[in-house]
Design a protein around this nucleic acid. Structure first.
Lengths: 211, 211
DNA sequence: ATATAGTTAAACTATATAGTTAAACCATAA
DNA sequence: TTATGGTTTAACTATATAGTTTAACTATAT
């Protein structure tokens, strides 16, 4: 019985990993239950034995991914360190995470925009306003010096995130549109460079801000 | 015969518009030929009579959209005006276009990442390198003064575009994650604000750049 | 050894959808 | 008037896929 339960978990995990990979690659609509089963090395019956339906399996995959993403983000921005250091740390960490899951951004963005309910429950549980207020409180002096008001915070936050996330969402577009621009041929090294570029770009913009 | 041809064009256009709307809203995989026919006010037989298959119809919609998008972008950046003005103009124009087609970015990005062939032919015909070189030539003085080398250009270009396009791709994510942050409740006015914010952000960053 | 939980195999149902066909309909140009 | 080309209707085929069922198999705990 004890061993059986352990096997249980292993299988569940195999399924979870397979589903994550397939959903992330193909999206919900184009993913096939058979393919997920194959990828997990089990058969379709067992897939439905563990997760009653495609929707249920999808949610089981999607929501933790989503939460993990945000928790990571929030944890960095909640740190009590100077703003400049925080920006550097954010780009270093977030870009590294995404380099390991390059298809995650386009997957999450697309699925949310086609099924907003999926994330509603998560969204409501996120301490978004607390984050904004915390950031604003921690960095009050710096932000004030740069002329950033509370009203500017959403613009600033979206801006910071854009620089890291957009290139992943636009990866294949870049690959094709900019394929003839030599410097971008290798996406990985482009993103490595981008860590420092983005950080210094944001800091420079803030330091030289006109209201 | 003459009148027939004109009717022909009208129907083709009705189909084209309907297909554009449905594909943009649902994506290729989830779009239904029946729904497109309904939306166009015709029946499925006629749909196949004009466009032999779903793939063909999709390409007929997708490729012009893509090209239109890039032509507009390129035309702004090719203008021979000061860099600061160009940045302002870009954000004003591009954000206005996207406000009229808010689902276009996520649609294009997703479909390209799931079927890169779709755009390969377009991509190859785009004067990307010329654009980079033209920008670099037109703004040589300003860029040099700011310490932007040719090698930095891709980072800079992606950065500029990110700030305008990412919020559209992340629109529903923002809607949910930031729903409790009062300042963002109205996406439209958020993007209106963003025109000036982005422009001044980029200019400030460049003027204060450390190499 | 036996019962049990996890697992497989294969056949099955139900449904959705792309695409086809053929006959009839209708406006218009010759 | 009549031939033509765009159009509708409705029935059709073919296929893909989610999900079900059932019987048999296997390892393990007791």
């Amino acid at each position: 019985m004890v061993k059986a339960k352990s096997t249980d978990r292993q299988t569940e995990e195999k399924i979870f990993n397979a589903a994550t990979a397939i959903f992330e690659e193909k999206g919900f609509a184009a993913a096939r239950m058979q393919e997920i089963a194959d990828h997990a090395g089990i058969n379709k019956s067992l897939l439905h034995y563990y997760f009653r339906s495609k929707e249920q399996l999808f949610k089981a995959v999607f929501q933790p991914l989503m939460k993990k993403m945000f928790d990571k983000l929030f944890s960095v921005f909640m740190l009590n360190i100077p703003f400049e250091d925080k920006i550097c740390m954010y780009y270093n960490e977030h870009i590294d995470i995404l380099l390991k899951n390059p298809r995650l951004p386009i997957f999450l963005l697309y699925e949310i925009s086609h099924n907003p309910d999926l994330i509603k429950s998560i969204g409501e549980s996120l301490p978004t306003r607390q984050l904004r207020d915390a950031i604003y409180k921690i960095h009050h002096n710096e932000l004030q010096e740069w002329g950033i008001t509370k009203k500017d915070m959403p613009q600033l936050m979206i801006t910071i995130v854009s620089l890291a996330v957009f290139p992943f969402a636009a990866r294949d577009m870049m690959r094709i549109v900019l394929s003839k621009v030599a410097e971008i041929r290798n996406f990985n090294s482009f993103m490595q460079e981008r860590k420092a570029f983005s950080a210094s770009f944001v800091i420079s913009a803030l330091k030289n801000r006109k209201k």
